[in-house]
Amino acid sequence: MFEARLVQGALLKKVLESIKDLLNEATWECAATGISLQAMDSSHVSLVALNLRSDGFDKYRCDRNVSLGMNLTNMAKIMKCASNDDVITIKAQDDADTVTFVFETPNQEKISDYEMKLMNLDTEHLGIPDTDYSCIVKMPSVEFQRICRDLSQIGDSVVISCTKEGVKFSAAGDLGTGNVKLAQNANVDKEEEAVVIEMQEPVSLTFACRYLNSFTKATPLAPQVQLSMSSDVPLVVEYKLEDMGYVRYYLAPKIED
């Protein structure tokens, strides 16, 4: 028996919104420690890795590990039926071929349940080695979203260049060029407005705007985003979920031909 209850059901809605652009289907791996998911987009350029720890749920029971393969478009349809203040419970029997979502209003006066068919997915799991990144940038997630949106109007790619002084995002296209520079500023009133750079050596990497824009669908999940970069390895874009886990995206760089 698997059962996970989340009073803050809106969080689950937001998690789904943050991945459904990139993934049509994925397997939610449920274990005693929590729920995790790892999947590449169909072009194998980006990967989503998320983790929701069991202690972040209000009630969590997982008698044995279960893999819940889901069509995320269909899951999103069902999640749309939950109100933002609903309590959401996910339930599945061991070896079941369906999953049940229960939505309760805070006053318990309306209880809805939706049963969805599960899928048997052949998922490739990638081993991601621990890496010491040359540059780690922490910045407001809204700022990152804004920059990705703005620069995708200029070109298809964004060059992210990071030095001790700051981080620069650049794009070039038929109409011209655009650059956005952010200076390091740890001395702000609110922690979430800080731009903090930890640099071992400077890096400059090129990434496709399309994927970066998809990653920013996770913006409502966290006030800050963390970008981890090293030369010629995939970028990691991480949104930390308070007391719960994380949503991470990996993106393969573009390289000079």
Binding site: M40, V45, L47, G127, P234, A252, K254, I255
Partner: peptide, 14 residues
């Protein structure tokens, strides 16, 4: 000109 790399060329399938 730039070409897009794929994640499989960086990470191994386990």
């Amino acid at each position: 000109n730039e070409s897009q790399t794929r994640l499989d060329s960086f990470f191994k399938v386990t």
